[in-house]
Design a protein around this nucleic acid. Structure first.
Lengths: 235, 235
DNA sequence: TGCATTTTATTTGTCGACAAGAATTTCAGG
DNA sequence: CCTGAAATTCTTGTCGACAAATAAAATGCA
């Protein structure tokens, strides 16, 4: 079913590229909800779709499982991991903390090169906002905050933050829907303020802005979830 | 070379146990420094040592690579990841933060069952301290703090904390050596104080104790590293 | 003898195949 | 028509083998 897509499958791949290809494709399809949570992943089907053996697909699945994006049921199918809406607050708690510490550290350790990269990422974000490209916004927003995190130079925070932002990609569609498909121009201004604080090396202000930024996003999502739940009950 | 070890290799394994076996063995050997950083890992050698095919070993290596314990050089050997002594402060920064947030959350959300488990882990830790079992101390200390983290009920923090404590297992031998092989009885008292704060639900005290706990460990390691570095220069 | 190049050898990445375990279907009995 | 057991299909976990890429050794040349 629905196998008439043109993947532009390059019949001859370089030696070590198989796993990366499978990993990237699967990862993007999971994060963009092309593969919704709970979807079973058939190895042989994927193998013939990507025109490769089951081995590299298996390796990609192991990596995705290590990141928590898929869940491996032993001797049974591996499925796309579910979003735990019950314990979503733990996600909000963690991502808020990462917003804070990465922005703080960026204000402390950023170089001029870091600043240039952050500003470039912000420009990309503004571009996608202007174009009203929702998926692009999510991606460029992620890149913006990862650029800040890398300026902070703590790979542990950067890695966790990256995974949390990726996990957020599966929730963000809800977030943007909560604006009624109107895109948040205020985020652009908040980003600009964060850049200014980082450039000035003002750790306290950077922390405060990051906290507010995270709080606003979290509250927005939470209100939508509450609204959605009530609708479900009202039925 | 040195292949005359008795591993008690069970000639017949259950179906899905191969990867887990290889993963656990490799992981422990890496964390206990039986395989020092930089050691190349030969897949075929490991395969015949564990009496299995290369496939499950490969899968275990991918998992370890995802955790950062091994580094895969494409088309070349995968080696045990190096400890980056240059940027060790990022490790200290992150683990201090995790000490704090997990202990805070435990004070907030712990149940009576969590408390019982934490106290049991502390008893285990005391036992290894009394026995002067260094490797046991490191393991039971890890379990103690992970029990606290799980009482805090944030899987993101628990996962990162676990990985940081594991990474610490490769640095802790330095830490204990800095006492001149005398074991720190004071840690036991600090643990008891943390348990009391968690039991009382006193978030502020829990935070303060965790911070002090982390700071003391970090400072101890840092002084030893500085001393060691000076020795190297003095030669 | 020292350096560059070819040849050999080692190790990884990928493949197809086979068997074990689980899910599904078939079939018998009530 | 329904229920439960046996058989079948399907999917995964593991294996041995082969080819590409790299490292090591050998050879030729100055």
């Amino acid at each position: 079913m629905m196998d008439d897509e043109q993947e532009s499958l390059p019949t001859d791949r370089k030696r070590g590229s198989g796993v990366k290809l499978a990993y990237d494709i699967l990862r993007n399809e999971i994060l963009d909800l092309v593969l919704p949570p709970g979807t079973p992943i058939d190895e042989v089907q994927l193998a013939e779709r990507l025109a490769m053996s089951r081995t590299p697909i298996r390796e990609a699945l192991v990596r995705l499982a290590a990141e928590g994006l898929v869940t491996t049921l032993t001797n049974r199918s591996t499925i796309v991991s579910n979003i735990d809406f019950q314990n979503l607050h733990t996600f909000f708690d963690a991502i808020t903390l990462m917003y804070r510490v990465t922005t703080r550290l960026a204000a402390e350790y950023r170089t001029d090169g870091d600043l240039a990269l952050i500003r470039a990422r912000q420009a990309d974000y503004v571009g996608t906002v202007r174009a009203e490209d929702e998926l692009g916004m999510i991606a460029t927003n992620r890149d913006f905050h990862i650029a800040i995190a890398e300026a902070g130079r703590n790979p542990y925070y950067t890695a966790l933050f990256g995974r949390l932002l990726d996990e957020g990609r599966r929730i963000m569609p809800i977030y943007y829907a909560s604006y009624g498909d109107r895109l948040p121009e205020s985020v652009v201004a908040e980003h600009e303020a964060m850049i200014a604080a980082i450039a000035a090396g003002d750790v306290a202000t950077a922390d405060r802005l990051a906290t507010a930024h995270a709080d606003r996003i979290v509250k927005q999502i939470q209100t939508f979830i509450a609204r959605d739940r009530r609708q479900a009950i009202d039925l």
